[in-house]
Design a protein around this nucleic acid. Structure first.
Length: 873
RNA sequence: GCGGACGUGCCGGAGCGGUCAAACGGAACGGGUUUAGGCCCCGUUGGCUUAGUGCCUACGCAGGUUCGAACCCUGUCGUCCGCACCA
């Protein structure tokens, strides 16, 4: 079998006939299937990509055949660091690398048989795409959502640029797990994601079909917490602090200001403590990020005292290494008795500990070994004594609000998104600096600000810095001498709205036609890796909300359905990758087994959200199935006769496979397809309708081979756009599901009896008696109006507890289906009759089937109560 | 510390309140076909028995709810993942 030839043939035909291209069609229900678009790396498509796209493709094909107008596009996240690094290494331009890589990707993706609408391709490195990145930037700038500020930012020495918080994992750069991120004070561009913090947080609840862990990660990341801002005073100036435990305010014995606090310097400048503080700052600066979790709490007294507004107590202020500068107010009120960190600090610096919350037992401030952080009753808290601490949170806050000493508030962990990068291969930030006018945005009509082609990559430095034709411009306001911003935008800016551009990818007038976007959005199924939980998957929600508020779209969320596929592991159990050396390439597998085999195998190993392990043995097993399939069609014999049994099997398979595909349980779908082929294979002749139904439901999984077989049995159209078969509940007959085991048992019985009797039979009599279960069912049916529990209770006394309980419960659940559960006498008779010929042939004897009346065949019933009796003569 | 997920034969993995634990695939063993087999077909793979379609034990462990639990609840042990000095 020349797989390659068949694959090529159908890929060409699909492309020529444009069967996967779609347009808005108000008469059809739309369905938008999207995979996270790839970064087009030079090494091309690996098996993990193949798995990811196969999952999406099967889904898209399924929906398409189910009459949806399916938008299933592909694009490339083609701005980014690796291409730039490659360019530096080879003294070339990243554009060349990127475009080669994209070409290679497209070729390889086409070889997988993916049913993308290629006319909708989006490439983010093209000016006609990033022009709109810049346009969105200007809109944000107008509204104050894009701004520049000096801040402590994360710097990766290997990337030679700053990073967003989301891109720092465990104190390391997301791209360089071996490189510590440094904190630098720099002036940078930010997007004000915090503007939407609350909506981003509260909206998670509505993402009903997102994986729990991704939602949990986002909740954690955004980190909403309710608390109170309390105004302490230092040197008669108000210094607010944030706390979630205002109930402990009488227990404050000191304050801690973050060592990184912007205004720490103000407090110590010119005092005798300045030196101490500076020494302390130097000391903690040398601590590595990875030691942080083991880090002891340290601090230094800064020579100031704060006034607690509730009782005017004076408490010392320390600078500390454990207080975050950019969460809350950068300063905390420390209550050592009821906060573990404060406790450790107080112990170390011998600061008094004052108990203000009391549990059922007594706490001795000198003897406790750790802070008491649970709730209790307030003590040492003047008029609040005796109040439950949970109530006191409310009451003390109200009290402070009344006296204008504090207020209720909400805090978020989420910080604004740092988007500027000191690199070349990104979207230029459309800002101009004029000596006279200051910072001036580029006029919309002058977009895009294009990346120059004539650049020299001499070092790790951003080549835009020295590119005069890029940097030197006239000020849009005064026409005077000015220079461009040379920072570019984070690559995640591009991916924050690409899914909208697919809806209208060629529009050169506006970012997209809102009507088209309104038709296609939201994404109905978004497929990608879990690693984007706190990066892309937050940013694209933020963009959606911003563009909504701009009036361009009318949705709140980009998608309510997210699917995370599992990781692909190599045969050694480690995650499959080039660097681990356990990689298997799609084209290699395709060469020996065909790409359909690879697709089928990839998808058959486990439910798609679980990790899967590649195995050579496994793919051979799948290959055997493909060979069997092809063999079957080489010898196929059609019949006009209806076959109820196989019809039942097909219908039940369709019913189940629909659910399996919807739930991404492709492994189960594949099993059902195998079982269906087994069943079909057992029949000598087959009705053509059955075969066509089978091919259709197989087609999303193995599209090329199936198209070929579809054509072979005389069809001229594409099966890929044929209609998915509908199952008919009435045709699903459960007795056939029992038939095989039932007949197996009878065969077994007969041979046993023959062996016992010790003679070759000339006549075999099979007595089919009424099932006792069936009789009980009939009794129950008569009593249906009565309380089932009561009935069960009564019958139980008689000693058939288990069976009766089961049967009656089934009956309660679904009385109409009861016959599906127990074969009645009629069905058993039919099944024996159906197989009479086979039995006669097998035992070389005449078979007689007798309906046993309970009175007449008492003997048979006794020997085999409620079952089949065999007599041979 | 906080959060999330998961513990089922030799392995991967189905089952997610009762028809029914172990589908399906892999592996091993036995048999058939075969010159031979790495192809194909059949059987076996928790225990005890039987002529058998029978009984017992079992879904990490311990309790609970229920007429009935792998499945629901509580606790516990273990594994994996994410975040983390978030006041």
């Amino acid at each position: 079998m020349d797989f390659k030839k068949i694959e090529q043939k159908w890929q060409d035909r699909w492309e020529k006939a444009k069967i996967f291209q779609v347009k808005e069609d108000s008469k059809k229900k739309k369905y938008y299937v999207l995979e996270m678009y790839p970064y087009p790396s030079a090494s091309g498509l690996h098996m993990g990509h193949a798995l990811n796209y196969t999952i999406g493709d099967i889904f898209a094909r399924f929906k398409r055949m189910n009459n949806f107008n399916v938008l299933y596009p592909m694009g490339y996240d083609s701005l980014g660091l690796p291409a730039e690094n490659a360019a530096i290494k080879n003294k070339s331009h990243p554009k060349i690398f990127t475009e080669d890589a994209i070409k290679n990707f497209i070729k390889q993706q086409k070889e997988l048989g993916l049913s993308y609408d290629w006319s909708r391709i989006v490439e983010t490195h093209k000016p006609d795409y990033y022009k709109w990145d810049q346009w969105i930037f200007l809109k944000m700038y107008e509204r104050g959502l894009a701004y520049k500020k000096k801040a402590s930012v994360n710097w990766c020495g290997k990337c030679n640029t700053v990073l967003a918080n989301e891109q720092v994992h465990d104190g390391k750069c997301w791209r360089h797990k071996d490189s510590d991120v440094e904190i630098k004070q720099l002036e940078q561009w930010f997007f004000k994601t915090t503007e939407y913090a609350d909506e981003l947080y509260e909206g998670i609840e509505k993402l009903n079909n997102w994986p729990e862990d991704v939602k949990a990660m986002q909740r954690n990341w955004i980190g909403k917490s309710y608390g109170t801002i309390i105004n302490f005073k230092i040197d008669d100036e108000i210094w607010p602090v944030f706390t979630t435990r205002p109930d402990t305010i009488y227990g404050v014995t000191f304050m801690v200001i973050s060592a990184q606090h912007q205004r720490l310097n103000e407090l110590v400048k010119g005092t005798k403590y300045e030196k101490d503080v500076n020494n302390f700052l130097k000391k903690i600066k040398s601590t590595k990020q990875e030691d942080l979790d083991k880090l002891e709490k340290e601090g230094v007294f800064i020579g100031k005292y704060a006034i607690n507004p509730i009782n005017n107590e004076k408490v010392p202020v320390y600078a500390g290494n454990f207080v975050l500068a950019d969460y809350g107010c950068g300063m905390v009120m420390a209550v050592p008795a009821h906060d573990q960190r404060d406790f450790e600090f107080a112990k170390k610096y011998e600061i008094p500990i004052k108990i203000v919350i009391k549990p059922d037992y007594d706490l001795n401030p000198d003897k406790i070994s750790r802070a008491y952080t649970s709730d209790g009753v307030l003590v040492n808290s003047k008029e609040f004594n005796g109040t439950n601490s949970l109530d006191a949170i409310e009451e003390i806050t109200k009290y402070l609000e009344k006296k204008k000493l504090g207020k209720k508030t909400v805090q978020y962990k989420l910080k604004d998104w740092l988007i500027s990068r000191q690199r070349f291969w990104g979207t230029p930030i459309p800002i101009i600096y004029c000596d006279k006018c200051g910072m001036v945005p580029v006029n919309e009509k002058d977009l895009p600000v294009k990346l120059p082609d004539d650049v020299k990559f001499i070092s790790n430095e951003n080549p835009l810095l020295n590119n005069n034709s890029f940097v030197n411009v006239k000020c849009p306001k005064c026409n005077g001498k000015a220079r461009r911003e040379t920072d570019t935008m984070d690559t995640f800016v591009n991916s924050s709205w690409y899914f909208l551009r697919y809806c209208d990818n060629k529009n050169d007038k506006v970012i997209f036609d809102p009507k088209k976007v309104k038709y296609w959005m939201p994404i109905d199924m978004y497929i990608g890796g879990r690693e984007h939980a706190c990066m892309h998957l937050i940013y694209f929600r933020f963009y959606t909300k911003f563009l909504r508020d701009l009036g361009l779209i009318n949705i709140d969320e980009p998608t309510y359905n997210l699917f995370n596929q599992g990781m692909l592991h190599g045969e050694d159990g480690k995650v499959m990758s080039k660097s681990a050396g356990n990689g298997v390439l799609p084209e290699e597998v395709s060469r020996s087994y065909g790409i359909d085999t690879a697709r089928l195998f990839l998808v058959s190993m486990a439910s798609q959200e679980k990790d899967v392990v590649w195995s050579e043995k496994g793919i051979q097993g799948t290959y055997r199935f493909m060979i069997k399939l092809i063999d079957y069609f080489n010898n196929i014999k059609f019949s006009k006769i209806k076959n109820e049994k196989i019809e039942s099997k097909l219908n039940s398979t369709i019913k189940e496979i629909n659910k399996d595909i919807e739930n991404f349980k492709y492994n189960l779908a594949v099993i059902r397809l195998r079982q269906l082929l087994e069943a079909i294979n057992k029949e000598k002749e087959i009705n053509k309708e059955i075969i066509e139904g089978f091919l259709k439901i197989l087609s999303p999984f193995a599209p090329h081979i199936v198209e070929e077989l579809w054509e072979k049995i005389g069809n001229k159209s594409f099966i890929s756009i044929s209609e998915w078969p509908k199952y008919d509940e009435k045709k699903i007959k459960p007795e056939y599901e029992f038939e095989d085991t039932f007949i197996e048992n009878i065969k077994h019985d007969i041979s046993t009896v023959i062996r016992l009797v010790g003679k070759e039979p000339s006549l075999i009599k099979i007595f089919v008696s009424e099932s006792w279960k069936y009789e009980i069912y009939k009794k129950l049916a008569k009593m249906e109006s009565r309380n089932m529990k009561e009935i069960i209770g009564k019958i139980m006394v008689k000693g058939h507890e288990k069976e009766i309980a089961k049967i009656s419960q089934l009956f309660v659940k679904n009385p109409n289906n009861f016959n599906n559960v127990v074969l009645d006498q009629k069905t058993e008779l039919k099944l024996v009759n159906d197989n009479k010929e086979e039995l006669e042939k097998l035992f070389k004897a005449k078979v007689e089937i007798i309906k046993a009346e309970s009175s007449k065949e008492e003997k048979a019933k006794q020997a085999y109560p409620g079952k089949i009796a065999i007599l041979i003569e």
